[in-house]
């Protein structure tokens, strides 16, 4: 018990350290922009902030030096990310507005990406026709080479303008979600399919496979009961790594399809040089990434008994 608890604690500690470092690096970088200029921006009458709000912002950004850093760090830990330069509203509020839509998009896209990847990898592994196999093996390289924004545009062109299957404006929520999810899923499915196909091929050359075949097992039995199970851990790792791309991809996808969400917010923040918003988005992305990969790491000993002894 103490062994695995220690492993869990040390991995969690490492994750926290990475997050802290990401925050600090982002903070320091964005501090390179003159701080006073930020305060002046908030006094711009176009933002329409009341004197009380300005006072509040001033008290948030008012301190200087290490005090300011600690202040911001504590704020982030409490879920208080400062104020948007663009609108003067709290960053947390703007994030909260965009988060549900982005989570829906990203979650659906991830599920679809895994589905595509598994289908492509297993089909290319299972087929005996060498031509079909070659074509399927080329699919991940093609998918990873397609610019997401262009794919979105092409999808709109084909499905909305040519085939008129999906309305450009309006339509049900499902219809609205369909093309963006596809756009986001395709590039993300590529690395997963690639590693899964490669792992399947690699596991199939291992000496234990002929031993199973010598028991009289069919190719399907070998693939599903032995090979797939051993190919899972590396695939899980790569799937975890794609979570970062999921957030980055939503910037492009939401922009192309004109959807509101964290991605759109990010794009607007860069245009407006809204550093507090960008810092919050970066920290959010890093948090999601680090947490997902922490879970993957902790799952490893469950999937591979060889790691259990090292852990326990």
């Amino acid at each position: 018990m103490s062994g695995s608890a220690r492993y869990l604690l040390s991995r969690a500690g490492q994750a926290a350290l990475v997050l802290w470092a990401a925050f600090t690096a982002g903070y320091v970088l964005l501090q390179l922009l003159p701080g006073d200029a930020i305060l002046i921006k908030f006094q711009n009458p176009e933002l329409g902030l009341s004197p009380e709000q300005i006072a509040e912002i001033r008290s948030y950004y008012g301190t200087d030096g290490p005090g300011a850093y600690l202040h911001t760090l504590l704020g982030f830990l409490r879920g208080d990310f400062g104020y948007s330069i663009d609108t003067g509203t709290p960053v947390a509020e703007r994030l909260a507005e965009g988060l549900p839509a982005t989570a829906k998009l990203a979650g659906a896209a991830f599920a679809l990406a895994v589905l595509i990847a598994v289908a492509v990898a297993f089909a290319s592994c299972h087929t005996r026709l060498s031509r079909l196999r070659g074509a399927l093996q080329a699919v991940p390289s093609l998918f990873v080479s397609v610019p997401a924004f262009w794919l979105g545009i092409v999808l709109i062109q084909v499905f909305s303008f040519r085939l008129r299957l999906v309305p450009v404006i309006g339509g049900s929520e499902l219809q609205q979600l369909l093309l963006p999810v596809l756009t986001l899923a395709v590039p993300i499915s590529a690395p997963i399919a690639q590693i899964l196909a490669r792992s399947l091929d690699q596991v199939r050359t291992q000496p234990f496979v002929p031993v199973v075949a010598a028991k009289g097992a069919s190719p399907g039995w070998i693939l599903w009961r032995h090979v797939a199970r051993n190919a899972l851990p590396p695939t899980l790792t790569v799937a975890g790594l794609t979570f970062g791309e999921l957030i980055a991809g939503s910037v492009v996808t939401e922009t192309v399809f004109g959807r509101n969400g964290v991605g759109r917010l990010t794009e607007q923040a860069v245009n407006a040089q809204d550093t507090p918003v960008l810092l919050a988005v970066v920290v959010l992305a890093a948090t999601v990434f680090v947490l997902v990969n922490l879970v993957v790491d902790l799952l490893y000993p469950v999937l591979d008994p060889r790691l259990r002894r090292a852990v326990a």
Partner: peptide, 16 residues
């Protein structure tokens, strides 16, 4: 740390 931030966001940070 660099890996934990997606490439595009890192690029956007540099651009800002």
């Amino acid at each position: 740390v660099l890996l934990s931030v997606p490439g595009l966001l890192l690029a956007l940070t540099v651009i800002i």
